[in-house]
Simulated scan of single mutants.
Amino acid sequence: MITGAVEILLVEDNPGDARLTLEAFKEGKVINNVHVVRDGVEALAYLRREGRYREVRQPDLVLLDLNLPRKDGREVLAEIKADQHLRQIPVVVLTTSTAEEDIARAYSSHANCYISKPVDLEQFLRVAHSIESFWLNFVKLPPHGANDVR
């Protein structure tokens, strides 16, 4: 059981989408800490707690865009799910892609959920609130420390 704030890692290179997601989660009913990284290399460093991320808490949930600089979100997802210390962390793919190939590949790489970002602001906020409602209110997430490697 998770006590305290829910830790969320948002992997998003679009500043506008990151800002909207942060605002939507700030308005939410569940106390959460959303940390934003802007590319796949930084996401993996955060998850592995390397360099400047040495002291961060392991996230309870990852929101992952697919089209990222430096390391593609598809590669990040595959690396997360291949790593015994990270694979338990639920990964919600949150991307603009509606390509069937991306959807199939994400689920083949063990994504926990695939959501296409709506273009409309109101719908985007509704999607963010539904993520919060489902993943932070109803789903039982792994306990803190279950993924810790320290």
Rank of each mutant, 00 (worst) to 15 (best):
R105Y: 13
T95Y: 10
L64R: 00
K81N: 07
D120M: 12
K140G: 00
I89N: 04
K140F: 02
L47K: 03
C113S: 15
Y53G: 00
Y46P: 02
V91K: 08
H144P: 09
R126A: 15
I103K: 04
S109Y: 09
R48Y: 08
T96M: 14
E101P: 01
C113T: 15
D120Y: 11
A146L: 12
V62S: 02
I103S: 00
R74S: 06
N67L: 14
L77Y: 03
K140V: 06
Y53R: 04
L77S: 11
L44N: 02
P142N: 07
D83I: 08
T96H: 08
A111M: 02
R52N: 07
C113V: 11
Y46S: 03
V56I: 15
L94T: 07
K71C: 00
V76F: 04
T96I: 08
R48N: 12
V149E: 13
L94Q: 07
D65A: 01
K117T: 00
P142R: 11
G73L: 07
F124P: 05
E75S: 13
R48W: 05
E50P: 07
P143V: 07
V56D: 03
S133G: 05
D65S: 00
R57D: 14
R105I: 12
K140M: 08
D65W: 03
K140Q: 14
I89M: 03
L64Y: 01
K81A: 11
V76C: 06
R105V: 14
I131G: 01
W135L: 05
D148T: 13
L86G: 01
F124S: 02
A111Q: 06
R70L: 12
I115M: 09
Y46T: 07
T95A: 09
E55K: 11
P118A: 06
E100D: 11
S108F: 08
Y46W: 07
R52F: 05
S130A: 15
V149N: 14
E50S: 13
V93P: 02
E75F: 09
D65H: 02
